[in-house]
């Protein structure tokens, strides 16, 4: 329930919201889970009814979604490559020196 956004509130998951609609949404989740629905099925049902806005875990299915999910790791790779490229210049004559304080 923490992954579904209350449609009437600002940025609150339905697990925390005290709005009436959130209570209805919670009840709906309970019914569906009681009927044996998986998490993915519950999410799909809410998405088809209220739109992708209700999902706190955005989908990675199209280009925007893929960008959102891959960008952090992309940044990490790019940052690593840049850092590696810069460090290669500094290697000659490195001597170990023990740190005397922090």
């Amino acid at each position: 329930m923490r992954e579904l956004r209350c449609v009437a509130c600002e940025n609150e998951p339905i697990s925390q919201s005290s709005a009436a609609i959130a209570e209805d949404m919670r009840a709906r989740v309970r019914v569906m889970v009681g009927e044996g629905a998986t998490d993915a099925e519950v999410r799909d049902w809410f998405e088809s009814r209220y739109g992708e806005f209700v999902l706190f875990r955005p989908k990675g299915k199209d280009l925007t979604g893929l960008f959102l999910w891959s960008a952090p790791f992309g940044f990490l790779v790019i940052g690593g490559l840049i850092a590696y490229g810069l460090t290669r210049r500094r290697r000659a004559g490195a001597e170990p020196v023990a740190p005397e304080d922090a």
Binding site: E3, P13, F53, R57, T64, P72
Partner: peptide
Amino acid sequence: IAEAAGRTISVGEPYFRLT
């Protein structure tokens, strides 16, 4: 950004938990 591209989405705890 997504809204400018015509999609309304929410990014919440699950996104940050996984990245």
